[in-house]
Design a binder for these strands. Structure first.
Ligand SMILES: [Mn+2]
Ligand SMILES: [Mn+2]
Ligand SMILES: [Zn+2]
Ligand SMILES: [Zn+2]
Lengths: 156, 156
DNA sequence: ATTGAAAATGAGAATAAATCGCAATTAAAA
DNA sequence: TTTTAATTGCGATTTATTCTCATTTTCAAT
């Protein structure tokens, strides 16, 4: 049925691992979300939906999904390891707004090519890469400008 | 005397903070190291040198050094936040060998330009970025090839 | 020099993410 | 079915980092 399930199942079988209901549930939830997420969030979301599987299983399943190539870790935003699904989505990089936390995704063929080129020059065989640009989105830049116009005070 | 000390002092003064002996010691150690490092390593190194300052002070000082622009966080390798000094060193990106942990530094003007270009297109104002490429260095590739030549067994 | 207020320190407790140990359960190949 | 290795949940544990707070220190103003 589900292509992702088929892929995951296949991946597991290849390693003598089992396609358990818990793993199925995590997979399902992962692909129902359309944002970046972390283990705890996923656990909570499942809990809310009355899918009672343990945190441990969530923590144990996510790395498997990464290895299977269905999801990937994203830039670590604040302490927690976060993920995004990759399947049917393709590789991309991120801009992260320092002001509001917004995430902008982008992909540059040129940058990807240059990276490979550089790796080649160093005899380095790239497996994955992550590019994250922190800064301010349009809206936050506007907000900041307005604040500066105002007369006084500014803690922080 | 020391330019970095002058900068840090200036930075601190500007915020009503104090240039204490503890902060001086951390700064000194940071610039004596020439590799990436984490808080605990720095603490241990200071301890070894009989500089008795608390972990808490190390943990408190590093973020200040980051804000001052003298050092920066690097790609998180394994759980710990790691840093490198930036002053007098210039921005660069990293390749990280999955096999042996080696770090290769590089800088590509072209990639930097492309990044800025893309940010402009998105109305995004970049503040800092991090590009990390994980993969295998020359030596580790060789090792892997040899292993494959051997007849049997391979856990993991 | 003295003083005083604000900031910093050290020591250990507290927190939070992630991992682990283990007894009980379960998937799935034979 | 049976069998066996894999998996689960639970709580305990680990590890990095932050926090608390009583005491000490800095530094600018007297
Ligand atoms: Mn993304
Ligand atoms: Mn570096
Ligand atoms: Zn924003
Ligand atoms: Zn290597």
């Amino acid at each position: 049925m589900d292509k992702t399930a088929a892929i995951f199942k296949e991946f597991l079988k290849g390693r003598g691992l089992k396609f358990t209901p818990e793993r199925k549930a995590v997979l399902r939830e992962v692909f129902s979300l359309h944002r970046h997420f972390d283990a705890e969030t996923l656990y909570q979301e499942l809990y809310r939906k009355k899918v009672r599987i343990s945190r441990a299983s969530v923590y144990r399943t996510l790395p498997l999904l990464v290895k299977s190539g269905l999801i990937a870790e994203t830039l670590r935003c604040q302490g927690k390891t976060s993920y995004e699904h990759i399947y049917g989505h393709g590789h991309h990089d991120h801009m992260l707004c320092i002001g509001c936390g917004k995430v902008i995704e982008f992909r540059s063929e040129k940058i990807e090519k240059l990276q490979n080129e550089i790796c080649r020059r160093h005899g380095f065989k790239p497996v994955e890469h992550r590019l994250g640009i922190k800064g301010y989105c349009r809206e936050c830049q506007r907000k900041i400008k307005m604040k500066k116009k105002l007369p006084l005070d500014s803690a922080e």
